[in-house]
Design a protein around this nucleic acid. Sequence first.
RNA 1: CGGGCUGUGGCGCAGUUUGGUAGCGCGCUUCGUUCGGGACGAAGAGGUCCCGGGUUCAAGUCCCGGCAGCCCGACCA
Length: 577
Amino acid sequence: MRMSRLFLRTLRDDPADAEIDSHRLLLRAGCIRRLASGIYAWLPFGQRVLAKVAQIVREEMDAAGAQEVTLPIVQPLDLWKQSGRDSAYGPLMFRLQDRKEAEFCLTPTAEEVITTIVGGELSSYRDLPVNLYQINWKYRDELRPRFGLLRAREFLMKDAYSFHVDEADLALGYQAMYDAYGRVFSRCGLTFRAVEAASGEIGGDVSREFMAVSAVGEDDFVWCRSCDYAANVEAARRQVVTKEPAAPGSVPPRERVHTPALPGIVGVAEHLGMRPDEMLKVIVFDVDGTLGLALVPGDREVNAAALEQALAPRPVRLYEDDDFAANPKLPKGYIGPDFAGASIVVADPLVRGRPEWVTGANEVDHHVRHAMLDRDFTVQVWADLAAVAPGDPCPRCGSALSIDRGIEVGHVFQLGTKYSEALDVRYTDESGEQHPMFMGCYGIGVSRIVTAVVEEHHDEVGITWPAAVAPYDVHLVVLPGKGDVAAEVMRAADEVYDALTHAGVAVLYDDRDASPGVKFTDADLLGMPVRLTLGAKGYQRGVIERRDRSTGTEQELSLTDDVLTVSPDELRALVAG
RNA sequence: CGGGCUGUGGCGCAGUUUGGUAGCGCGCUUCGUUCGGGACGAAGAGGUCCCGGGUUCAAGUCCCGGCAGCCCGACCA
């Protein structure tokens, strides 16, 4: 592609509303332009990256035995009412009506549609398993779109759905997808982890999230460097170390202390000369309409997912500011583990780890010292409530866990029969009996991969595309100089461009009438893995310069002996380095 | 949804306090010089100052009401 004809405008200045590196660079490099909040146009340069990522996904899906389809973006809302997810997705869905006032939505995902279609086509165990996928735009009216493509309202997603006769076959199909996902992210040049996930709205039992490791990610996950354990913080566990309670009598009686206007753990600890981990944190929640308390050490957070799990199937909801406002009698910030209004007390085993605690006195502006388990307060349910913190022991091997941030680029689920039962999708087995199909679903954020790739592959001057997803293989810069030789240099550069193109190399050819500085700066920003520079001086010496974008390594190639005379295969190898 | 900040040529911004002919840098056009890391000179083009209403002789600026964008938060007492 000749740059003089390419629809591309690089930006000198950083756009003011781009916060993270990938968003900033994708805008500056002319990959995308914003049309509305969380809605982006893909321009030719970015489109090539998107297409390359999509092609990698396509190849790996096909290799794993999945078959590509294209499903409608506009979906009848009735389907969502049947599955019960109309209300579950709620305002996350873009909704619309046709001229007859029939209701539709823009697809946020496609379990309902694919299930309906498969159910209409297949009815025998002989037809299973089957795995169908599409690469298509998805729509979610996010609470807060942000960071460019990272959390967009319109995004390109690969979604695959597999159908099986039983759980064992589902597990096989799931594993095939899991393996394919690893290959996809590796090929895209991402550093990633497959982490245990708490299944959310989609439902199901077994699932893994694929996290591209990145400081700008929106998800925290723990991982163990020694044994490979990795989990989303919500699903993460740590090794439980149980201590015997301290002997009675060793702790002084409770003592009430005045802690005026200090409703926070840190403030109270400072006031009393204690450490936060010597304080007992008491979190108020609602369970089935009654009030419950969750206890963790003061330096710990309560993992809401773990609390829910501990009390399941009873619904749990942590108190928010509104709840406290509605219950002015609750001494917010000063509630103790013996609060009279509590119907249940749940505590983390860490609460056994200390003979006495400083905690709320159930009265505004007062705390108590020397609160002792089983003497001054009791616990009905023990559960791993405390969120995992860096340095905690790994639940598998006991080594220190670390917490990293990641961008969720993929998610695989074993759904079981949730959708096939709701939408009545059955097959007939050998003996003529009907059973719901077992389903798996598998998503990849294709446009989000582009952002994750730029986050991982850039430097202070621009993008450093991995070869597999680079929009072009080679950036050819011609510097014709002045005088009679200029036309010759241009002609030689044209020849190089033609030779490379005929060899199957995708070339971005900077044939613009611009200064060397402009061309080099743009080449750095646009970030093709290899830059070839043909200048007047080099031309006269018969050489063309090859520079590796990410390492900065330079070498000279002979124009006549190498570039313009070798076979296409040799030329490709020469350029690739 | 709550809080904060911001809307002025394509991009980045000043001007708003104290109302008085809409500015700067980059980019764009033309000409000349320059030509291996964002060159220089000269001459140009380009703006409903987010939208609507109000005050005023006069509004980018003041008042009222909207809209949009970005950031933070939306369980940690």
